[in-house]
Write a protein that binds this DNA or RNA. Sequence first.
DNA 1: CGAAGTGATGTCATGATCTGTCATGGGTTC
DNA 2: GAACCCATGACAGATCATGACATCACTTCG
Lengths: 193, 193
Amino acid sequence: MPRWPADSRERLATAALDLFSEHGYGAVTIDQIADRAGVTARTFFRQFQDKEEVLFADDDLLLPILLETIAEPSGPIEAGTLMERALVALADRMQPAHEALRRRQAVIDTDVALSGRELAKQARWEGTIATALTERGFRADDASLLAAIGFALFRRELHAWLADASPDAAPLADRVRAALPSLRTILDATTAN
Amino acid sequence: MPRWPADSRERLATAALDLFSEHGYGAVTIDQIADRAGVTARTFFRQFQDKEEVLFADDDLLLPILLETIAEPSGPIEAGTLMERALVALADRMQPAHEALRRRQAVIDTDVALSGRELAKQARWEGTIATALTERGFRADDASLLAAIGFALFRRELHAWLADASPDAAPLADRVRAALPSLRTILDATTAN
DNA sequence: CGAAGTGATGTCATGATCTGTCATGGGTTC
DNA sequence: GAACCCATGACAGATCATGACATCACTTCG
């Protein structure tokens, strides 16, 4: 039998999200999180860089999905199609975690610093995607523009998906697929007076 | 004669940027900033919500430019044209501060939390722009998509502009104008193998 | 002209966040 | 079974951030 339970990191993450949801991010102290997880505050800071990071630590598990999807198809491919495949693959992977992601986003939305951290993470993904697209054969300029637009679109659909609590909410992947065509025409076709 | 010099806020902001540039954001304490500005740390926190905010406090002065440009033109207007006008107006206003903005961005780029705060600020602008576009007569969906894409593009050009230290660097407005047309064709026309 | 008020700042106290350092003691290795 | 490993605990300390109250040049008003 180990001297301590082996999953302190997971217990800390669970305790943190529960407490944040219940009392608000700012009202929860590291000591409270550590107490609920059965460890000391020092262990929290060994597992997570800071108080914010406990909400973002798992995000990087999703990045490989994007990279694999971009590298995978052989032969020439149109840029919009490739971007769509990558974003839909990401959406499919996120779909099962809808409820957990909603709780997490609800906490993030209450704090500017947390919102920023979320956007910074997405920006880092965006840069990685642009690099992958460049290695796939696109011009660097086109790649960065594609990545920027793709993520702007994805962010928008993700936000709508997370705001929809109904059990039969449209899947994120469907939303993403539906959104891409509108992008191709909006700049030319949309007018107002 | 006032009991104290009247510009403590400005002196704090200047001292902070100088110290951050010289020693790095993390290595500078509030006490050091306050000392250089000739006040106490308590006064720093009366002027700025927290240590990060001293780098972002002036940003909201730029937002009205966007809103005015969007509300201004009368008669029907094409969406892309309106977005271009707003972003070019913003770029023109930022142009004279190139050097100061470069120093500031150099500090921001060294810290994830600061990068996030910058993106969060831009996201807030994006939302305000989308609202303004809606009030201008565009459908809400189109407005948010337009705002998202416009800012994705602007971010990209802003980054390139800030990375260019040469005195005859292309003006930000020119970069923005040049980038918009590429957006209209990239999704359909770009292929790679 | 003097009393009362104003407001930016200082001073002090306190709690929260985060880090460095060393000790502890089951598990593992040889 | 001796030596080592390593996640955690324990403790000290620096920094960040906020609340409460005092100070005093300047302003306002009678």
